[in-house]
Measured scan of single mutants.
Amino acid sequence: SDYEVNVNGIHHRFHNISEELIKFIEEALRRGEDLREIIKKVRELLG
């Protein structure tokens, strides 16, 4: 049904976003950045 496609589409989009965010955060932590600064950047990215 349309509803299922829609829900799956939304889930898929969020899954991709969270994968990208996790990579972004892991790389920043590897560079020794402060978690609070990383979260601030993530918030800015998400608008």
Rank of each mutant, 00 (worst) to 15 (best):
S1E: 10
S1T: 14
S1W: 14
S1F: 15
D2Y: 10
D2W: 10
D2S: 06
Y3S: 01
Y3G: 01
Y3H: 04
Y3M: 04
E4W: 04
E4V: 09
E4C: 07
E4N: 04
E4Y: 06
E4D: 13
N6Q: 10
N6M: 11
N6V: 14
N6G: 02
V7D: 04
V7I: 10
V7N: 05
N8G: 11
N8C: 07
N8R: 03
N8A: 06
N8T: 02
N8H: 07
G9R: 01
G9Y: 01
G9C: 01
I10G: 05
I10H: 15
I10M: 13
I10E: 14
I10P: 01
I10A: 08
H11V: 15
H11M: 14
H11L: 15
H11W: 14
H12W: 06
H12F: 07
H12G: 02
H12V: 14
H12Q: 03
R13G: 15
R13V: 15
R13D: 14
R13K: 15
R13E: 15
F14Y: 02
F14K: 00
F14M: 00
F14G: 00
F14H: 00
H15D: 14
H15C: 04
H15T: 13
H15Y: 08
H15K: 09
H15E: 15
H15V: 11
N16Y: 05
N16D: 08
N16T: 04
N16F: 05
N16W: 06
N16G: 14
I17T: 03
I17N: 00
I17M: 06
S18R: 04
S18N: 11
S18A: 05
S18M: 03
S18V: 03
E19N: 11
E19C: 03
E19M: 09
E19G: 11
E20D: 13
E20K: 10
E20R: 10
E20Q: 08
L21F: 04
L21D: 05
L21H: 08
L21K: 04
L21P: 00
I22W: 07
I22K: 09
I22P: 00
I22G: 03
I22T: 03
K23D: 10
F24D: 06
F24L: 11
F24I: 09
F24Y: 14
I25L: 04
I25Y: 01
I25F: 03
E26W: 04
E26T: 09
E26K: 10
E26D: 13
E27S: 14
E27V: 09
E27N: 11
E27C: 05
E27G: 09
E27T: 11
L29C: 00
L29P: 00
L29V: 13
L29A: 06
R30N: 11
R30E: 14
R30W: 12
R31K: 11
R31Q: 15
R31C: 05
R31P: 01
G32W: 05
G32M: 06
E33A: 08
E33K: 08
D34R: 07
D34H: 10
D34L: 09
D34V: 07
L35E: 03
L35T: 06
R36Q: 15
R36G: 13
R36W: 13
R36I: 13
R36L: 14
E37Y: 07
E37Q: 11
E37N: 10
E37I: 11
I38N: 00
I39G: 02
I39A: 03
I39L: 04
K40S: 12
K40N: 11
K40I: 13
K40V: 12
K41G: 07
K41D: 08
K41I: 12
K41F: 11
K41R: 11
K41A: 14
V42E: 00
R43T: 15
R43K: 14
R43D: 15
E44Y: 09
E44D: 10
E44P: 06
E44W: 08
E44T: 07
E44G: 05
L45P: 05
L45R: 05
L46M: 14
L46S: 11
L46C: 10
L46Y: 07
G47F: 09
G47N: 09
